[in-house]
Design a protein around this nucleic acid. Sequence first.
RNA 1: GGCCCGUUGGUCAAGAGGUUAAGACGCCGCCCUCUCAAGGCGGAAUCAUGGGUUCAAUUCCCGUACGGGUCACCA
Length: 546
Amino acid sequence: MNYKDLADLIFPDAKDIKYYEEKYPERNLKEGAVVTRIAPSPTGVMHMGGIYQALIAKTVARQTEGVFFLRIEDTDQKREVENGTYEIATACETFGVGPDEGRTANDEDRGSYGPYKQSLRKEIYQAYAKYLIEQGKAYPCFCTAEEIEEMRKKQEAAKVRPGYYGVWAKCRTIPIEESMKRIKAGEKFIVRFKSPGREDRKIKHHDIIKGNVTFPENDQDIVIIKADGLPTYHFAHIVDDHLMRTTHVIRADEWLSSVPLHLQLFYEMGFKAPKYAHIAPIMKNDNGNKRKLSKRKDPEAAASYYDKAGIPALAVREYLLNIANSNFENWRRANKDANIEDFDFKLNKMSVSGALFDMVKLLDVSKSVISKYTAEEVYESALNWAQKYDEDLAKTLENKEYALKVFGIERGNKKPRKDIAKWSDVKENIYYMYDEKFEPKYEYQVINEKQDVDTILKEYIENYYDGNDDKQTWFDKIKELSGKLGYAKEVKEFKANPDKYKAHVGDVSTVLRVALTGRTNTPDMYEIMQVLGKERIEARFKLAMK
RNA sequence: GGCCCGUUGGUCAAGAGGUUAAGACGCCGCCCUCUCAAGGCGGAAUCAUGGGUUCAAUUCCCGUACGGGUCACCA
């Protein structure tokens, strides 16, 4: 009786690992190409942190002409949620961080290193577990949950480290014959890794982001195959990232402390370990306390939140890049029109500690991003968003030709407008340009007497407005009108001699603006008038004079 | 609690043994201007703390406090 017999008894049908080693050969990539991945669990909606991770992993892969893939980690079937894979895959696509290969939204594989869903890889894990058992590096453990619990209590009472290690690892020393007998008798078991580590020895590790860290060696005989035959995260990570030929594991820093275990596992399997980059999570200020964005407590943790709000995916990516590499914004100022793909992202420039999520800044980034859009792009994006989330807006936008004119106001020139931060802002920004949506609100600030207002409006439309005027002429006429009615033609002139005039040209303009749009703040009034046309201007003035 | 990691304005942060300690968001003021959004200019605001090492420490070392992570048949 030897380890081989034990291994055969436990996994009689498992293939030799050579089969998989040959099936998933080294990737044929150019020198220095990086293979990265995201490996989320389908346990609910996609988290912002997941998008962040995906963006970073994808960026690094792209920079080196490598590969970025998506693997679904569904080894905990209790926590799995329906449509989990779909949620993850579509969120990646909508935020522009879709993988080169991996599991797709319709639960299929794309790429030749699959399956990319762990529950479908059961036999692979078992083959590798068998390989370990054959070498005496893993063993069956018959301890029940109750026994483990009892052991933990004893350890607590004795004030020693909890866990399954050293003398506490009861099943580690069971003779092969006995193990086999118990298995044949139908006793339940799981498979544990036989750790060669010693807690009193240190292991040094260089993390790309965290830098040099020193840990005690792992000495825990962790579970590698659970009662349901599926692997634990640790074991799946080793097998998958080896077989999928991942070169850089970029993951949340909650994993940092299991690096000693992972390194040990890679070593004992005879695999080359990947490089690690542990990302600090995105935080939130919760009543003065900094904590991780929480899927459960924070609506803004869900990736879908940003889609619903109408923040462009590009803005989200820019903001995230901002958090990731703080020199991004300096680069952005120097390269205003450059593609974010051209930014030289550096993993090792990422912050070691988590950044507080700053919605205000995101919105500022978003404003800049949208300001660079053409009217056509604004239209398409806004319409797209409206069709998903705002029927009324979508209907309003049906007339594309007109909508393009509206979105074209102060856009496309050197200093484009920066007033839309998210598509849900659009309504408020354009509705007054639609007669059926226009809601008059006649609050004229300085010039308030109805008679004065009416005179301005009447005079202007009858004797001054001409749709063919260029902007300068157009404004000169408003000045002229102002002068005629006893208002200062220049604001400065008014300020110098406030007693000489009733008001100034700015106030006259305000009257026109309010009558026209129902608001005191609008984009350039000349352009607004151009879009509305004389008839509609007149109609609105008449309404105001009623 | 053990083990890891961290702490520069309100926020994101650059930075180096000697600096007027970058820049961005936000805030305030001014300018521009027909009003806003912008844009331009300027302002307030930061090296957690105690002890070393040093001619010199925010930067290096040790302690303290605070924050984060982790200690599962969850990932």
